[in-house]
Amino acid sequence: MARNITSPLAGQLIARLVHEGDTVAADTEIAIVESMKMHIPVSAEQAGRIARWLVAEKSTVAEGEALLVLED
C-alpha cells in the first residue's frame, strides 16, 4: 500500500535524505525542513520503499503537505 509522508511543519525543504527506490526502516530521517532557523528532521513513521519524491529541495512546504510516497 502506498502512503504519503507529510511534513509535520511549514518551512523550507532544505535536504532530501533518501532517494527514490531506497528502503527505509521506521523512524529513518527522510528530510530536513528549516523553520525558525532550525534544521528539523522529518522521519518515516513506518518502514517501506521510497516510491517517489513529490517536493523539490529548496521548496517551501506547508504543514501537512505530502513530501514523498512510501510503498510497503
Partner: peptide
C-alpha cells in the same frame, strides 16, 4: 519541543 517549529 524543538522538533516542531524549533519550539516556537
Amino acid at each position: 519541543d524543538p522538533y516542531h517549529y524549533g519550539g516556537a
